[in-house]
């Protein structure tokens, strides 16, 4: 199918983009890599009046060192993220998860910022942003604000961005020494979305897992931080016992890929696998 008609704007700078967003109002849609939006336009599930194309905003593609964090431009493609030396050095969890996103052609176009702004609960990267305590940098004509990843995902396909706000970057804190990471994605066919995914980072302390950060993909309308697992590990629980708590407080969906009960079971099994893999580093 072909998309419904729309006006097309291609700003050359962030300020121009913000102006276009303010002018166009609620019926405008931003397009970054288009890898989530194009199928929606083609199926006419999205019919914006105006499409604002960020393609020329090259200043938002870079990754930079910001002292105790790295800042990844919202328009950095998945392809770029996988190869960037700063990301590889300071955010290996993001690299592992991004390698499991879609396929090479989609990764050439799709952007980190787009994957977060889309706020699809089955997407792999929101859980990673939550596990890494990332902050999302949002800008509008009214100013700039930092949104903690834990507050960014509001509901199914709904982010905390206001209609006139642009996601400009993602600030990922550098981990200290001794952290191991893993992303465990369970899916049945190549290129498919996660039925359940587990993002985790752990620090070994005297041969035990001490600090841990765990977040789940597709166990509810937004990514879920597993505080119960983290606290159990901090209290000295073994990985297997702590992982049993993974689904606590989640509202997993039931769909063609699996029932809520099946996902609850998967969450515990995959969390145990992810923690064991991360702790072995």
């Amino acid at each position: 199918m072909i998309p419904a008609s729309f006006d097309y704007v291609r700003p050359e700078s962030v300020d121009e983009a913000l102006e276009a967003l303010t002018d166009a109002g609620e019926d405008a849609k931003i397009i970054a890599g288009g890898q989530s939006l194009m199928p929606l336009l083609r199926m006419r599930l999205a019919m914006p009046d105006t499409l604002i194309d960020l393609d020329r905003l090259d200043s938002l593609r870079d990754v930079r060192d910001d002292g105790d964090a790295i800042v990844i431009g919202a328009l950095a493609t998945h392809h770029r993220v996988l190869r960037d030396p700063l990301v590889r050095a300071h955010a290996p969890l993001l690299v592992r998860a991004t390698a499991k996103v879609a396929d090479p052609a989609v990764r050439h176009r799709g952007t980190f910022g787009g994957a977060l702004a889309h706020a699809d609960p089955a997407s792999d990267l929101p859980a990673v942003a939550v596990a890494l305590d990332a902050e999302l940098l949002a800008r509008s004509a009214r100013g700039e604000r930092r949104i903690p990843a834990a507050d960014f995902f509001v509901d199914w396909m709904t982010s905390a961005l206001e209609p006139d706000e642009l996601l400009t970057g993602i600030r990922v804190p550098k981990p200290g020494e001794g952290w191991g990471v893993h992303y465990e994605k369970f899916h049945r066919t190549a290129q498919a979305w996660a039925i359940v995914g587990v993002a985790c980072a752990v620090r070994r302390d005297d041969g035990r897992v001490g600090d841990a950060r765990v977040a789940l993909t597709n166990m509810g309308p937004v990514p879920v931080r597993c505080r119960a697992v983290e606290e159990a590990l901090a209290g000295g629980a073994a990985i297997r016992d702590a992982a049993e708590l993974a689904a606590e407080g989640t509202e997993p969906p039931s769909d063609l890929d699996g029932s809520a009960e099946y996902r609850t079971h998967l969450a515990a099994v995959l969390t145990a696998r992810a923690l064991a893999a991360a702790a072995a580093v």
């Binding site: 199918m1 097309y8 291609r10 288009g34 890898q35 194009m38 199928p39 083609r42 199926m43 194309d53 393609d55 392809h79 396929d103 090479p104 052609a105 989609v106 050439h108 176009r109 290129q191």
Partner: peptide, 27 residues
């Protein structure tokens, strides 16, 4: 397809593979 899944439409753009059903001509 309509869903960016099948890859039949793959071409190279500036040397990288893309699904040409999921890129606008203006892009």
């Amino acid at each position: 397809c309509d869903t960016t899944n099948c890859g039949a439409c793959t071409v190279l753009m500036d040397g990288l593979s893309v699904k040409s059903c999921s890129v606008l001509a203006v892009q």
